[in-house]
Design a protein around this nucleic acid. Structure first.
Lengths: 194, 194
DNA sequence: GGTATTTCATAATCTACTTCATTTTATAGC
DNA sequence: GCTATAAAATGAAGTAGATTATGAAATACC
């Protein structure tokens, strides 16, 4: 059950649970192993799961009419990922969620999560805290995007998430930061010269 | 108690409460009347309240080092507003929240909200749903900002929020959409010509 | 281990949007 | 209603970042 250890710690950092409650909670998560380049969410299909990353790296992105990809989220160890809108409203997804590396996930499906929340208010609290922090995180990203230049956005990202910056393809990071891969290349190059 | 009617409806649309539970919930909100240009949140002070708008319009914005204002959120009737990060983490705010018109709010403070959530799991559920929808809303904005041109962002906003678009100052809307007021003016003008 | 395929780098050209400066229009306060 | 002030419109000039094109380096895969 080594795969569950990090999720257990994740929970303990957020709410207080007895051993029994903890077991009840995590036993509803199923281990899912996926290979690099494999999709766990695709447009037009409902995102059935909330995914906790035990190991590996994933990327959520949308593709616009011109075929350009825009990275919406990354996830590495101890992060959650899904098509957020699709999951909470249980409506067709607009995103792809793909493994950038072989990965091990812990998945819970929407109905099971609903049952858990009904069974114990502490579980409801956990998902409330998670949603609040997600909202706060998204809002910080909105603020950064509105107030910073391309180079500043890159600097902030590498400072905040050094482990992600050096682990994902440059084109994926560039589109997450709202710039082209060519321009990100130029930014990196300018830094080397200084 | 006319002021509480819209909040009651807001709650009924999201969770099922008995009359008694409803009264318990809303009685913790205090009526706050503010004048145009008045601030309810300022940088360096902790945002103590979650604010529900009964009447009026408000704007949350940040000011960067160069003195430029960037609108982060609007709120009109039946919307919530605060400095989200400041409120949920109870840390100093980075935003201003100001009334664009005379307004009537219903305010709950952080500690009272915590008590409510402890008192009844249904209340916890309400805040969980609210946070989830907030996160989903923010993510849709991130996606729009990454994938659309200035004109497309303006079109989407006016389609989705026609009541807001025509009610707030142009400079506030422009900075919400991530462009200058001059450029928004030009976009509007181009539409008139067509 | 060699070849096909991705990914990244570099550079020239282009454009969506900004900046700055000025005028016109709307709003607020007495 | 009149004046002061803020907001919006207009236009010229400038720039951050996109686009396009090409080659080099890294990675995947049989």
């Amino acid at each position: 059950m080594a795969q569950y250890e990090s999720l257990i710690k994740h929970l303990q950092d957020r709410i207080e649970l007895s051993e029994e409650e903890m077991n009840q909670f995590v036993s509803n998560f199923k281990i899912k192993k996926i290979k690099k380049r494999q999709f766990i969410v695709q447009p037009d299909f409902v995102a059935k799961h909330r995914n906790y990353v035990v190991e590996g790296a994933l990327r959520a992105y949308v593709v616009n009419d011109e075929g350009q990809e825009h990275t919406i989220a990354f996830a590495i160890e101890d992060w959650w990922i899904s098509d957020y809108n699709s999951y909470i409203y249980q409506q067709p997804a607009t995103m792809f969620v793909m493994a950038l590396e072989d990965a091990v996930l812990l998945q819970i499906d929407f109905e099971t999560e609903a049952k858990l929340k009904k069974a114990n208010p502490k579980f409801e609290t956990f998902f409330r805290i998670t949603a609040e922090r997600t909202a706060a995180f998204f809002q910080r990203r909105i603020i950064t995007n509105l107030t910073s230049s391309a180079e500043e956005r890159y600097d902030k990202f590498t400072n905040q998430f050094p482990l992600i910056a050096n682990r994902v393809p440059q084109y994926a990071l560039a589109s997450y930061l709202g710039m082209t891969t060519e321009f990100l290349s130029k930014i990196k190059n300018n830094k080397l010269k200084k």
